[in-house]
Design a protein around this nucleic acid. Sequence first.
DNA 1: CTTGAGCGT
Length: 160
Amino acid sequence: MAMAMRLPAISRAVTEVASASASAPVGLRRLFCSNASRFSFLSPQAESQTPARPQAEPSTNLFVSGLSKRTTSEGLRTAFAQFGEVADAKVVTDRVSGYSKGFGFVRYATLEDSAKGIAGMDGKFLDGWVIFAEYARPREQSQPYQPQNNMSRPPYYGNR
DNA sequence: CTTGAGCGT
């Protein structure tokens, strides 16, 4: 009775690992599959079909995630500067508390440097955490601060 | 103020 529970529990765990690898972000997926997906001659369709998580096109700007919440913008710049000229490095912090959100951005001076930065830093350790570096998606809103929530509707307190 | 899977006030 008690022994019979063990085997299903194991196979369930295996299934969960497999599905986690399938639904994980591209950076995280490298943990499970490494570069094996590059050799996709066994399943040629996998290459032509758009994966669930499309990668951003190459840019000088890098999205870096998996950061320790103790990693600062200066630490980020120092780590990535080994592989190229860093024009800007920024750990994203909560506006009110000021604490790191665990990801950030690194902008290199050139596309060549940003490619070397990904190659050199993606999957590496920084402050005790495995970090992921990939090309950043273009920002959704433009440069000056604009609240994404439409609070523009004036308050209305009834008559008069 | 350190334990998340995340694209910037």
